[in-house]
Design a protein around this nucleic acid. Structure first.
Length: 535
DNA sequence: AGTAGGTTGTAGCC
DNA sequence: GGCTACAACCTACT
């Protein structure tokens, strides 16, 4: 109760010591500190109905990354004379139970703008208020407070373009203040009575079996790893100063073309604000540097842009009743979706990327673009929400606002509308990696295919296929669609869908969408018939 | 009402 | 590596 002398630090994201205002405040003026993490079954419980090992929300790679981050957090807390208390269950309920049983006068946790936590936090705050417990919930996951930008600076609506976001956001308030990056010690952990406290579990303890995979993500979770990676990334000042995102090589995998700090930012193992300040320090000491949107700081601002729009847009993660999302008659073709998801489209560039996603949980941004475009408006015309689900589970850096924002972008449903610009599943990869080394690594079945054919193996003469020990249609699939005709058909459908959205001023009903879907399919059948006749 | 600009398209040319 | 045509969308702002 309010008479207590302890603080409860509730970790969700923000799995770090450095620049953690909630932790800093919790540790000040309190005789006791309870650092808590709750293992949420929504996120961690095995779901055997899913297409890959993991829960319904997260694949095994990301679950493992989170556990590693917790182990590291626990060990960093121990160095400061504390430890991490791990509990299991629905986090909101568990937290309230802890507040009831423990000696807590102050509850601290990082503000989280995702709908899932917004709903949970309302209940927790209500309980705290009713019981005289002080709540401190600072914005420290992002550079800016999304609510501040939307309400105070833009009259209640989120900006829908990056440029307008930049103008509204300006410089962060804390840009030139000293962030607290180290703590010297923490108060001792209080008595936790009959609460059953766990150590950080292993994946096996969570009920997962060894998936028997030959290759796993090379990225280890945790604040220590994040800071090491940050230091490595910014040590090359020229590289930082000249960074231009679109110029990176998506096929580079031995040494990725970006920092790969995204998974650490996702879980808050790395503070985006600290990263921002480190980058500004580099910029100060060089003659010239790149700028947003392409620079490294630009990447952090992209992150905040998507957080802001996502916070200000109800139903951001779906097509229907989403104010900013174009209504498009996507198909529901399970076979095409499965081929894409399981790296069996017959396009090696696409399939190699999907294998990297499955094994590493990370691919270059442009590689993500290629497969997202291919699944949706480029070739297969499958609903972006299906692709979103696959990314959401498999990416180690999957972040609700950013993942959904990028699927809206790539499917030309919002933010980006030039649907005639389609990534070629053949030539896009080839211009970076003409020898196909990336494909050879992630699709070893094609490792002996001559480079003349590796992006289009179905065009290789049978003698070449035999010599490469890879028969197309047997050892590696034939293309599920022909890119030339499929992309043309997609453009036609997008054009029709856009016209419908414009005509109805965005108010497209299920019936409108279904009748367009029927018409498009009829047109396509007629077209196919006409083609046959001509032959 | 009209226009500029938009992180990252492709193919074909030099 | 850079230029052009291709076909053409939207948002933000004048």
């Amino acid at each position: 109760m309010a008479s207590g002398s302890g603080s409860l630090m509730w970790f969700r994201k923000g799995l770090r010591i450095h620049d953690n205002p909630a932790l800093d405040y919790a540790s000040k003026g309190s005789a006791l500190l309870y650092p808590l993490f709750v293992i949420d079954p929504h996120y961690m419980k095995p779901d055997p109905t899913e297409f890959s090992p993991g829960s319904s929300r997260a694949g095994l790679n990301r679950i493992r990354f989170l556990l590693e981050s917790l182990v590291d957090l626990d060990s960093n807390l121990k160095e400061l004379g504390s430890r991490l208390l791990v509990l299991k269950g629905e986090p909101g309920e568990i937290l309230i139970r802890c507040l009831k049983q423990w000696d807590v006068k102050r509850l601290c946790f990082e503000y989280d703008s995702e709908p899932y936590y917004q709903a949970m936090d309302v209940k927790v705050k209500e309980y705290a208020a009713a019981n005289g417990i002080e709540v401190f919930s600072p914005v420290s996951h992002t550079l800016f407070d999304p609510a501040d930008i939307i309400q105070k600076k833009n009259g209640g609506k989120p900006p829908l373009s990056y440029q307008s976001f930049l103008k509204l956001a300006g410089k962060p308030a804390w840009a030139s203040s000293q962030l607290i990056t180290t703590l010297s010690s923490l108060p001792p952990v209080g008595e936790f009575g009959n609460c059953e406290i766990f150590e950080v579990p292993t994946v096996e303890e969570l009920g997962y079996e060894d998936p028997g995979q030959d290759e796993f993500t090379p990225f280890r979770g945790g604040e220590s790893e994040a800071l090491k990676r940050l230091k490595d990334s910014i040590s090359d000042k020229e590289w930082v100063a000249n960074f231009e995102k679109p110029k990176g090589d998506p096929s580079a995998f031995l040494k990725p073309a970006t920092t790969v700090l995204s998974p650490y930012l996702k879980f808050g193992c790395l503070s985006s604000r600290y990263f921002y300040q480190c980058l500004q320090d580099v910029y100060k000491n060089v003659k010239k540097h790149t700028s947003p949107p392409v620079s490294l700081v630009g990447q952090l601002l992209w992150r905040d842009f998507f957080y802001t729009v996502a916070f200000g847009t109800p139903n951001f993660d779906q097509m229907k009743i989403n104010r900013i999302c174009k209504q498009i008659p996507w198909n529901d073709n399970e076979e095409l979706l499965t081929a894409w998801r399981d790296a069996k489209t017959g396009y090696p560039w696409i399939d190699a990327i999907m294998v990297q996603l499955r094994k590493w949980g990370w691919m270059h941004h442009l590689a993500r673009h290629c497969v997202a475009c291919f699944l949706t408006r480029g070739d297969l015309f499958v609903h972006w929400e299906k692709g979103r689900h696959v990314f959401e589970r498999l990416l180690i850096d999957s972040d609700w606002a950013i993942n959904n924002g990028n699927w809206l972008w790539l499917s030309c449903s919002s933010f980006f509308y030039q649907y005639n610009r389609i990534y070629s599943p053949i030539s896009f990869g080839k211009k970076y990696d003409p020898n196909g080394n990336y494909i050879r690594h992630f699709l070893p079945v094609l490792k002996d295919m001559p480079k003349e054919y590796i992006y289009e193996p179905w065009t290789a003469p049978l003698s070449v296929q035999t010599k490469a020990k890879c028969i197309i249609g047997k050892d590696y699939p034939r293309p599920v669609v022909s890119h030339d005709s499929a992309s043309k058909e997609c453009k036609r459908r997008m054009g029709e869908a856009y016209a419908l959205n414009q005509r109805l001023n965005g108010k497209v009903s299920d019936d409108d969408l279904n009748s367009l879907r029927r018409r498009l399919e009829e047109d396509q059948n007629q077209e196919v018939k006409a083609k046959r006749k001509r032959k």
